[in-house]
């Protein structure tokens, strides 16, 4: 049994404590926007926010999460895809297949919370999630757009 605060709702889940948070979010809680890609914290498709910091949920045991920890998934980032990162992603048509993009958006949102005007170097260091479609150029442009509130030029 674990008590989890996900997207502002506290839930009790029946699960073995060594289950990765990713799979609890996907299977017990039923929020499937957070994705499995590698299971070893390499790809970042499973990125969520825990207390405002981006974390790779495939490598966090649910038993190590406290009820007081605030977990935000892609579904809870905004009510209507209105977060500046989501709006910039839409404006630039970042996604291709889209599978990694929940994680990319969560990583970008966490970066901007910590660092509202990141440089290219900051983006290089923070945006380490894998995108196999290769949307990196647009991700970089969209992070800048979200930071500056500017439109694409």
């Amino acid at each position: 049994m674990a008590k989890l605060n996900i997207n502002g709702t506290v839930r009790d889940v029946e699960v073995e404590p060594d289950t990765p948070l990713l799979w609890v979010i996907r299977e017990q809680v039923g929020l499937t926007g957070t994705k499995y890609g590698c299971g070893i914290a390499q790809c970042g498709a499973c990125s969520v926010h825990i207390n405002d910091e981006v974390q790779r949920s495939c490598s966090i045991r649910v038993g190590d999460v406290q009820a007081s920890d605030r977990i935000i998934t892609i579904e809870g980032l905004s009510a209507d895809a209105s977060h500046p990162v989501q709006k910039a992603w839409a404006a630039i048509d970042v996604p291709q297949c889209g599978y990694c993009q929940s994680g990319q958006i969560m990583a970008a949102a966490a970066l901007l919370k910590r660092m509202p005007k990141p440089t290219d170097k900051d983006i290089d260091e923070a945006m380490t999630n894998i995108c196999r479609c290769g949307t990196y150029q647009r991700i970089r442009a969209a992070v800048h757009m979200a930071a500056n509130g500017t439109s694409r030029t």
Partner: peptide, 21 residues
């Protein structure tokens, strides 16, 4: 033209094969 299939890739609502219930 903008892609017509972007919206649900931004909020986690797109259902991929692994998400089928």
């Amino acid at each position: 033209m903008k892609r017509i299939d972007t919206a649900d890739k931004l909020d986690g609502s797109k259902i991929y094969g692994v998400d089928i219930k």
